[in-house]
Design a protein around this nucleic acid. Structure first.
Lengths: 218, 218
DNA sequence: CACTTTTTTCAATGAACGTTGAATTTTTAC
DNA sequence: GTAAAAATTCAACGTTCATTGAAAAAAGTG
């Protein structure tokens, strides 16, 4: 009977989540109407309100769904690089890599859902209205674990500098995954917004160098 | 008669721009209604449409107003650091500094208008819908001048790496000026989102180190 | 002052908005 | 198979939306 479950066609509730995720990513919370969601998911207008209570409830459900998965994967990556390191703990580069690499997992290249989700996170992260509250709610417990590891790897760091460095990392990361097409235009097509592997390979050394420059003893 | 002009109270058109700038920065384009703008500026609902044609026209006018000023100031900073450098051209650090420092000019600390503007730019920059198009429109001519200077300062750089480095800079910069309050919460109040001087002092070496790491000959 | 132009107000338009209570269909559980 | 529960549809609610044409007021010009 397992087979039957797998073959079951995608439920309406998930269709709503997927469609709304794509729409919110593109147009932001206020740029999307429940009617757009309903049409895209080919369900009745009232159904999304029934399942998620309200438009805002739908929005939160979207943020939560993949945050749980990403946080778990990042946590495993952090534990793994801790286990592989000596008693002094992992290097800055290994920690940064553990933070970034999971974003390319989960079949990122094939599953457009993750691409939409990261585009959405980019907007949320940069919103003066919701950025502080929502990013804290969905990501801070895990981020604090990474900050502790970084603190151990950079014992001479000023705390303020460490937090600013993370902030720079966060901004660079979310914009890179926002897929705005700007870098394509600036480079006259030489660089593709979609090339997350190329971006990842460069982001790790870029960010690592920044941390080391600011947070190592002179 | 100059005195009379200076003393003239702020015109309605400018009040609309200032109020809408603050509202768009906080809530995004679709999160703001013309009625909110009219109420905030204490003018009739129809007046903003009269002066700017449409809601979108108002939005563009807001983006353009300070972009012109910022681009000019950044250009002067670039020319200045070129003039002070030898024939080999300015260093990476000097170029990055010329790009960042102008954001703190224009009485940033006193004039909340600039703060709102940068919050708005952060949202636009990270919008998959508008980021590519609008940032290109308002900033690319100037950014290309900076890219040329960087290319000269980093002759061994792969072009793709140079563009990605700029992208990381752009993301870190806009999030930092987005004032979301996230870093305050993450650091339990040890770091203030509003401390742009502290952020600026750290961003220059952080970004410079990243450029040098990725774009210098090994 | 008389005039022209610009700015501002007023009133109204049709369309789109999120949400909800009741009715209906489908699924679940025994 | 039948009753209970969950999912889905239908129709409508009152509100808010951006824009506009015409009227009125203000400012500019000779």
């Amino acid at each position: 009977m397992v087979k039957a479950k797998e073959n079951k066609k995608v439920k309406r509730k998930d269709r709503i989540l997927d469609v709304a995720e794509a729409l919110f990513a593109k147009h932001g919370f206020d740029g999307v109407s429940m009617r757009m969601v309903a049409e895209g998911a080919e369900v009745d207008l009232a159904l999304a309100s029934y399942h998620f209570g309200s438009k805002r409830g739908l929005f939160d459900a979207i943020l939560l769904r993949r945050a749980e998965v990403l946080n778990q994967t990042r946590l495993e990556a952090l534990e793994k690089c801790k286990a592989e390191a000596g008693p002094a703990g992992p290097t800055v580069e290994a920690i940064i890599d553990a933070y970034l690499k999971p974003m390319l997992a989960h079949g990122y290249e094939e599953d457009e859902g993750w691409r939409h989700y990261f585009e959405l996170v980019a907007q949320v992260n940069n919103s003066p209205e919701w950025g502080g509250q929502l990013m804290t709610k969905y990501f801070d417990p895990l981020v604090r674990k990474f900050m502790e590891a970084l603190k151990k790897a950079l014992p001479d760091a000023e705390p303020e500098s460490l937090y600013w460095c993370y902030h720079f990392l966060s901004g660079a990361l979310t914009l890179t995954f926002a897929h705005t097409g700007r870098i394509d235009q600036l480079s006259d097509g030489a660089v593709k917004s979609e090339d997350m592997v190329g971006a990842y390979k460069r982001m790790v050394p870029f960010i690592t160098a920044g941390f080391l420059e600011l947070c190592s003893k002179k």
